[in-house]
Lab assay of single mutants.
Amino acid sequence: RRPMNAFMVWAKDERKRLAQQNPDLHNAELSKMLGKSWKALTLAEKRPFVEEAERLRVQHMQDHPNYK
């Protein structure tokens, strides 16, 4: 499986939080909310998630050198 990108790293915990706050929302609505929230973040706010995604990408390359 591919490593998570920055959005997916961020959305993993954010989706849980949103789902707890909005138990009646379907996954499609949660995804739309997550997309809008991600776009609203500044580059500085996204940076930790971008860095974690890069760390995961490098780790994935080391763990699976033949993955394409």
Rank of each mutant, 00 (worst) to 15 (best):
R1L: 11
R1A: 11
R1P: 01
R2H: 06
R2C: 10
R2N: 14
P3V: 13
P3I: 10
M4H: 08
M4R: 08
M4W: 05
M4D: 12
M4S: 07
N5E: 04
N5M: 02
N5L: 00
A6Q: 03
A6S: 07
A6I: 01
A6W: 01
F7T: 03
F7N: 04
F7M: 09
M8H: 14
V9F: 07
V9N: 05
V9W: 01
W10G: 01
W10H: 04
W10V: 02
W10N: 11
W10D: 03
W10R: 02
K12V: 07
K12E: 13
D13Y: 06
D13K: 02
D13A: 11
D13V: 07
D13Q: 15
D13L: 08
E14S: 02
E14F: 00
R15Y: 10
R15A: 08
R15W: 05
R15G: 07
K16G: 02
L18Y: 01
L18E: 00
L18W: 04
L18K: 02
A19L: 15
A19M: 13
Q21F: 10
Q21M: 04
N22F: 09
P23G: 04
P23Q: 07
P23D: 00
D24P: 01
L25V: 10
L25K: 08
L25T: 08
L25E: 02
L25M: 06
H26R: 15
H26D: 07
H26K: 15
H26T: 15
H26E: 13
N27H: 05
N27C: 03
N27P: 15
N27M: 12
N27V: 08
N27K: 10
A28K: 05
A28R: 11
A28T: 11
A28E: 14
A28S: 14
E29H: 06
E29V: 08
E29D: 15
L30P: 00
L30R: 03
L30T: 02
L30M: 12
S31V: 09
S31F: 02
S31W: 14
S31K: 12
K32Q: 08
K32Y: 04
K32S: 10
M33N: 00
M33A: 10
L34V: 04
L34C: 08
L34W: 00
L34Q: 01
L34P: 02
L34I: 02
G35H: 10
G35S: 15
G35D: 15
G35Y: 14
K36S: 10
K36L: 09
K36H: 11
K36V: 10
S37R: 13
S37N: 15
S37A: 15
S37D: 08
W38Y: 01
W38D: 02
W38R: 00
W38A: 09
W38E: 05
K39D: 08
K39N: 03
K39G: 10
K39L: 03
K39C: 15
A40V: 08
A40L: 10
L41E: 04
L41H: 03
L41M: 15
T42M: 03
T42Q: 01
T42P: 14
L43Y: 05
L43I: 14
A44K: 15
A44S: 11
A44G: 06
A44M: 10
A44R: 07
E45Y: 00
E45C: 05
K46P: 07
K46G: 00
R47A: 14
F49I: 00
F49W: 13
F49T: 04
F49E: 02
F49Y: 14
V50K: 13
V50L: 12
E52R: 04
E52V: 03
E52M: 07
E52K: 11
A53L: 02
A53N: 04
A53P: 02
E54G: 07
E54I: 07
R55D: 04
R55W: 03
L56V: 07
L56Y: 03
L56W: 06
L56R: 08
L56A: 06
L56K: 04
R57E: 10
R57H: 05
R57D: 03
R57F: 08
Q59W: 03
H60M: 11
H60G: 14
H60F: 12
M61A: 14
M61S: 14
M61F: 09
M61K: 14
Q62V: 15
Q62L: 12
D63N: 04
D63M: 07
D63G: 10
H64Q: 13
H64C: 06
H64M: 13
P65A: 12
P65S: 14
P65N: 11
N66S: 12
Y67Q: 05
Y67C: 12
K68M: 14
K68R: 00
